[in-house]
């Protein structure tokens, strides 16, 4: 196996991981601050992708489409926070799971009703399409590089927001003691709506960005949602740093496992059986990773509380 192929696959893995991070960051933030399990996060990803596809179809501008994705997902997030989620903060995890499961059903069928069952397409803009040549003569799609850059930039921005701004202080304080910061005069319900909308916007952005390389269709959010949960559980729920490390780990494991495991089993098995066993193990690889991490550290790599 050539070095070029390996580097390409590592880049693919990082790109996948970075997009998972956008999803996982919102999810882990919402759990960390509000203690809420939000299964409907995948629906916000879908909302972002559909808003982007609709706006790109109407205006032809990719940038406007991204703005629309951010705005639509943030608005949808703020809306469900104020109408439904707000009543669930004190409820048991089980009630939260059920209520947000119900929201998935409503969002999925609502989108199908509005846009139909056929997938929409979101094109990569001209200035981001085509390959670039990296040092070492590796040809790699520019759009995927742009995704990595955007993901890293968002990660840095999020770090700055949480560690260096007033809002970030309030968010961190909210994680530790919500009664106390409410007593100090912070409007806690506004803060919660804001955090929820922020997480939703990140999910919507991820949906729009990934929508341009895959198709935009109903139900696209749920597979990503499950992966994002795997990510935050590996990283430790509530930790943004954990979400980042977990996302890259999951992205690399999934991408590299699919490429290298069949070859690995080929070392000591017959070719046919090796490729079948290899691809079976590869599709289970991230869940095996997560199980191993949890057996080793029951509250994730960077998790403080269970």
């Amino acid at each position: 196996m050539s070095t070029i192929l390996i580097i390409e696959q590592v880049l693919n893995g990082v790109q996948f991981g970075v997009m998972l991070f956008l999803m996982a960051a919102g999810l882990t933030l919402i759990f960390g601050v509000m203690g809420l399990i939000n299964l409907a996060h995948g629906s916000l990803y879908m909302v972002g992708a559909f808003a982007a596809a609709a706006v790109a179809g109407a205006t032809g501008s990719f940038l406007l489409a991204l703005v629309a994705a951010l705005a639509a997902a943030a608005a949808a997030g703020a809306l469900i926070e104020m109408v439904v989620i707000r009543r669930l903060y004190q409820a048991a995890h089980l009630d939260q799971v059920l209520a947000t499961f119900a929201l998935i059903l409503i969002f999925t069928e609502g989108t199908r009703w509005f846009f139909g069952s056929f997938p929409l397409f979101l094109d990569i803009p001209d200035y981001l399409s085509g390959p670039v040549t990296l040092p070492g003569g590796i040809q790699y799609p520019l759009y995927r590089l742009a995704l990595i850059a955007i993901g890293l930039a968002v990660g840095a921005g999020l770090w700055w927001l949480i560690e260096r701004t007033r809002l970030g202080i309030q968010i961190r304080a909210g994680e530790n003691d919500r009664e106390m910061i409410a007593a100090l005069g912070v409007d806690i319900s506004r803060l919660y709506t804001l955090v929820f909308a922020l997480g939703a916007a990140l999910a919507g952005l991820a949906g729009a960005l990934v929508g341009a390389i895959q198709s935009v269709q109903v139900g696209m959010g749920e597979p990503v949602l499950i992966l994002a949960f795997v990510v935050i559980v590996i990283g430790g729920i509530g930790s943004i740093r954990g979400a980042f490390v977990g996302a890259i780990l999951v992205g690399l494991t999934d991408t590299l496992g699919g490429i290298f495991l069949p070859g690995f089993f080929g070392l000591f098995m017959a070719p046919g059986a090796a490729s079948q066993t290899g691809s079976a193990i590869a599709s289970m690889a991230i869940y095996i990773l997560m199980t191993l991490v949890l057996i080793w550290r029951p509250s994730g790599l960077f998790g403080a509380r269970a």
């Binding site: 759990f31 559980v233 729920i237 289970m284 029951p298 269970a306």
Partner: peptide, 19 residues
């Protein structure tokens, strides 16, 4: 594990069987 981690690890095992 406990709490949310238990919810998620049982999900992970089921996903292994699914795939």
């Amino acid at each position: 594990t406990g709490g949310v981690y238990f919810i998620m690890i049982t999900l992970a095992f089921a996903q292994m069987f699914f795939y």
